[in-house]
Every structure is written in structure tokens, then in C-alpha cells.
Simulated scan of single mutants.
Amino acid sequence: MKNLKTVLGVGILAVASFFAIAADHIDAPAVQGGTSDITDFYAFQGEDTNNLVFVANLQGLLSPSSTGDATFSENVLVEINIDNSGDNVEDLVIQAIARDGKMYFFGPVAPSQTGLNSTIQTNASASGVVDITSYDSSATIANNAGMSFFAGPRDDPFFMDFAQYSAIIGGTATGFNNPGADTFAGSNVMSIVIEVPKAMIGGLGTINTWVETKTK
């Protein structure tokens, strides 16, 4: 991991507070259709209420036939930013980057720099590594220092009825159907998941958190 250097931010998806979801499926021109495209970011309390879970999903709308060939780019850093002081500047980051079939995690750790440029914090005392789960395989989960890690393809959990949404926007419908039609049914994403003890995050109970993908 000594060869990991500085990378440049190209995509951002933001979400505020502990319990929130943000979604953005393939409409950012700079990353559309690429391995750095962020589809969703989830932040929520874990089953163990002393923990927080962060989920970053990339590469949306993968068909089952193409998912087996989908990979995490070794040139793309996924960085979860955490602001626990309310100034909208990251106080901590959790970084994830793929190498040779594994996903390496660094943090939570104070970044050496803030903003669009990042240096991978290879000297972070909190870290982990997990084998990237292959398609149609049981999830491989690694644990270290109270944290849990996963990386690999998963069914897209985001639900949206785009046809009905378009009808509402177009004035031909007044609301969503119950049940609606899931536009993303049968499509997959590449997921990165980390569960972290709240004690490692700090703050007074509310955080701002957002995810970025950054390329060399």
C-alpha cells in the first residue's frame, strides 16, 4: 500500500444527520456510466445501537448479466466524510480503495487535508481489509477494532417508480401508486459497507456526512 498517493475528487453525494439516505442514479456528467459514479449513500444506526453503518453504492443499473464482470477501479478512492463539529468541513474520513481483489479501509481518521484533494491515510491506526465478494456468493465480512467491512455487488435497494414520477411531473397523475413499480428491480450496484462504533466518530449526537469518489 506504500504506492498510494494523492487523488482528485470528481463526484460527491451528500447526506446530513445520522439517519438519512441520498440517491443519484447516473446523471452526473463527469462520472456517468463510470466506476466512480455514486448511486446512493446511506447512514444509519446499526443493529447494535452503539454503532453507525455507512453504505456507499456505485455503478448503478448493472444488469445481472454484466454484474459478474463489474469491478471496483483501483484508481478510484471512495471517501466517506464526517463533520462532527457542525462547520460542514470534514473532521474525519473513512477511505476505501481496491487492490488485487481486496478492499482496503483507512479510518475513521483526521484527514491530512480537506476539500477536493485527498491523501490516502495509510498510517491510520484504524484500518481494515476485506476480500471483495464475487457475484452470487455469500457476503464476505471482515472485522477489526470493533469495525466490520464489506465490499462487492448487491441488489440495488433503492426504490423509485420513475414512470409514475414522470407522470406526476407531466401533470397526468396526482400521486404515486400503492404499490408502485420499482424501476430498479433486478439491477445491481457495487457496494462498500462499514460499521463503526459511535465512539470512534465523536461529536454530540448529530453529524454531517457525505461521500466522494476521487480518482488519481
Results as ranks from 00 to 15, higher is better:
5 K>V: 14
10 V>K: 12
17 S>H: 09
20 A>V: 00
23 A>I: 00
29 P>M: 12
30 A>M: 07
38 I>S: 12
42 Y>H: 10
47 E>C: 07
49 T>P: 02
52 L>T: 08
52 L>C: 10
56 A>V: 13
58 L>M: 12
62 L>C: 06
68 G>C: 08
79 E>P: 00
85 S>V: 11
85 S>P: 00
88 N>F: 11
91 D>F: 04
99 R>G: 03
103 M>T: 02
105 F>M: 04
109 V>D: 05
109 V>E: 10
113 Q>S: 08
115 G>P: 01
116 L>F: 00
119 T>I: 06
120 I>D: 01
122 T>L: 02
128 G>N: 00
131 D>P: 02
134 S>I: 00
139 A>H: 01
145 A>S: 14
150 F>R: 09
154 R>D: 10
156 D>L: 10
158 F>W: 12
163 A>S: 15
165 Y>V: 15
171 G>W: 12
175 G>Q: 14
179 P>H: 07
179 P>K: 11
180 G>W: 04
187 S>F: 09
187 S>W: 04
187 S>R: 10
188 N>Q: 11
189 V>M: 07
190 M>T: 05
193 V>F: 11
195 E>W: 06
198 K>L: 14
198 K>F: 08
199 A>I: 13
202 G>A: 03
204 L>Y: 01
207 I>K: 03
210 W>A: 02
212 E>D: 05
215 T>W: 02
